[in-house]
């Protein structure tokens, strides 16, 4: 379970996240929506413990920078960050050893197989295309069997097979009880499986809806998104 409580992140005078709060329960898929520069990646990086911030982030009851929280967390960054001099398989081994995982080899093989990387095991990170690097990054993030998973624009650069496979992996993780946070621009790609949605605008959560809310009220998530993001623009233009 993930709790983000009143998180503010500043870069000098610029406020990237302004008192952001939300919660994701075990077995819930939550999406972060918003235009470019809304602060989605910043809040994800703060949750992952990569940035300093004001406020509180708890992962399964542990402060997000604690070792227990790190053990429970999986993070798939927006830009895949592989080591040039390690092969695909060695990335798996690196994560397994660094996280002191047991019986990981079979799991790693299954992940690589599902994302069609089986024949690329001995390819170096520097030899992979951007899409393949993204696939390896996903395998690294999921190998540790995390209970809280953060995906930052995970579909970008993936081929249709990988997108399909990733979606089914996400649903499997949900069934296993993981709390999942996905940041994306692609509303269509998450339409079939999201449970809750946070729409961000100017570093704040502008709206939060659950699937039940939307289904009950007949509201449309896409329309709501444009209403918030473009309505805000229209309002600004009107003020000018």
């Amino acid at each position: 379970m993930l709790i983000v409580n009143n998180v503010t992140k500043r870069y000098g005078k610029f406020v990237a996240n302004d008192a952001v709060s939300f919660e994701i329960k075990a077995g819930e898929i939550s999406v972060l929506l918003g235009p470019n520069g809304a602060g989605k990646s910043t809040i994800i990086k703060s949750v992952a413990g990569l940035l300093k911030f004001d406020g509180q982030i708890m992962i399964n009851g542990h402060e997000n920078k604690s070792l227990q929280a790190k053990r429970d967390l999986g993070y798939i960054p927006e830009m895949p960050a592989l080591y040039d001099m390690l092969t695909v398989w060695e990335h798996m081994e690196f994560i397994a050893r660094a996280y002191s995982l047991k019986n990981w080899k079979e799991r790693a093989n299954v992940l690589l197989q599902r994302l069609e990387l089986e024949d690329k095991k001995k390819k170096l990170g520097s030899e992979l295309s951007k899409g393949m690097q993204q696939k390896v990054s996903i395998c690294c993030g999921l190998l540790t069997e995390p209970k809280v998973i953060l995906f930052d624009e995970p579909m970008v650069g993936l081929d249709p097979h990988a997108i399909k496979e990733l979606k089914s992996m996400i649903l499997e993780k949900k069934k296993e009880g993981a709390a999942i946070l996905i940041s994306t621009h692609m509303l269509d790609s998450i339409d079939e499986f999201w449970d809750s949605a946070n729409i961000m605008m100017g570093g704040r959560i502008a709206a939060r809806r659950t699937r039940q809310d939307i289904e009950g009220s007949g509201e449309d998530l896409e329309a709501l998104f444009f209403n918030i993001t473009e309505g805000d623009k229209r309002q600004t233009e009107g003020e000018e």
């Binding site: 992952a48 413990g49 990569l50 070792l67 227990q68 790190k70 053990r71 967390l73 993070y75 960054p77 960050a81 080591y83 690196f94 994560i95 660094a98 996280y99 690294c140």
Partner: peptide, 12 residues
């Protein structure tokens, strides 16, 4: 430090 892994690894 230019890669996220060192920050994520659950060690002191």
């Amino acid at each position: 430090l230019t890669k996220p892994y060192i920050y994520l690894i659950p060690e002191s």
